[in-house]
Design a protein around this nucleic acid. Structure first.
Lengths: 196, 196
DNA sequence: GCTGAAGGCGAACGACCGTGCTATCAATGC
DNA sequence: GCATTGATAGCACGGTCGTTCGCCTTCAGC
């Protein structure tokens, strides 16, 4: 990796950290440069606009989230076990910057049209598709109901995780983990094949 | 209402609108003044700091949310009917500024300690308590299981609504309403008394 | 109708914003 | 080992930020 690419990665890592706490809007080039002991202009040269920085931060965060949450889960046996693995990884990412960033950026930009919002929508679709696909392997294995809607399951799971992030990060409620696990189990139960 | 109080209300209404789209952090005194055809200093005089403005916007939004969503629901018969009324009102508030503001402000400030965050936590507790209380009336009516945890129900319902706001506002997914209704019904079903 | 208070304006402040330009320094390719 | 490219710094620009201050106008109480 060339020197330029190395610093760029360092910048993106730090930017992801900051943005996960202050939001993308709270991310400023000046303070980011100060944190990395760089000059504003030196840092800025890597990204030719702030919007480009936003987009690249999103890309970096997506890679991190995929590496931390999604990819390890795909090594679990297909079907329910894989879904459980995804859930566990996701739960454990409540304090991982990349995961928080998507939650905050999504609500931050849901009303601000532009490339950043478009990217967020695309990223959500990707995640949602991944969940739905795992669900489908569960149907194929006979663990989930054929009549169940994989995309609806993805939506429901996402809701549960949004609730978990909210309760854990804003409220700091210790019951969060228990409740979230129970909600996840309820989702699985509801998706099981009906005996009749 | 004195003149000062009247303009203050107008400012808060507009500020709530703007903050629901740009977040509290995106709310600037200059642009807010321009929208209201006021001078920056004239507007600023009503609130002696930006943080005070934030707090008062939160107060205004809470009143609006209570008036729009919670209070009307309390007129429905106690128990399940009341819970359904709350849910309906809440669903219909997806495009109401006050409701969106709480969603966005909560994720925006979940990592920024201070009075604003404290207020958000308190407001969430109030809402959560209200939901739990309605649930308890449902237990008393025999519609919900005595063994069910009202606070957990409140958390679950909140998760469902977070998912609804996300899917509706960011993704603009038309299936949102159906899915959200189904999720709510699933929550009710799970809370019903067990036959054994 | 006068007087005191309150509401609102304009200008200005220092700080910081994103963004250029130019110069310097280090790394890279031959 | 030299030339070229790429990475970074310094400085400056026009704007906007939150905030302060002094002045003017409008209102309320008597």
């Amino acid at each position: 990796m060339s020197k330029g690419a190395a610093t760029r990665q360092a910048v993106l890592a730090e930017a992801t950290e900051v943005a996960s706490r202050l939001g993308l809007g709270g991310l400023t080039i000046g303070s980011l440069a100060a944190r990395l002991d760089m000059s504003k202009s030196g840092l800025f040269a890597h990204f030719r606009s702030k919007e480009a920085l936003h987009l690249q931060v999103l890309g970096y965060a997506k890679d991190a989230f995929t590496a931390e949450v999604v990819r390890p889960a795909l090594r679990a046996p297909r079907g329910e076990a894989r879904m459980r693995a995804l859930f566990e990884n996701w739960m454990n990412s409540v304090n991982v910057a990349a995961a928080c960033l998507f939650v905050s950026a999504s609500t931050e930009f849901d009303d601000q049209p532009g490339p950043v919002r478009d990217q967020l929508v695309a990223d959500h679709r990707d995640l949602s598709d991944a969940i739905a696909q795992i669900f489908r392997t569960g149907i194929a294995e006979g663990q989930f109901d054929e009549a169940a809607d994989p995309e609806r399951f993805a939506h429901d799971l996402h809701s549960v995780m949004l609730g978990a992030f909210h309760a854990r990060r804003l409220l700091n409620d210790p019951r969060t983990e228990t409740w979230t696990r129970q909600a996840f189990e309820a989702l699985l139960d509801a998706a099981r094949p009906k005996p009749d």
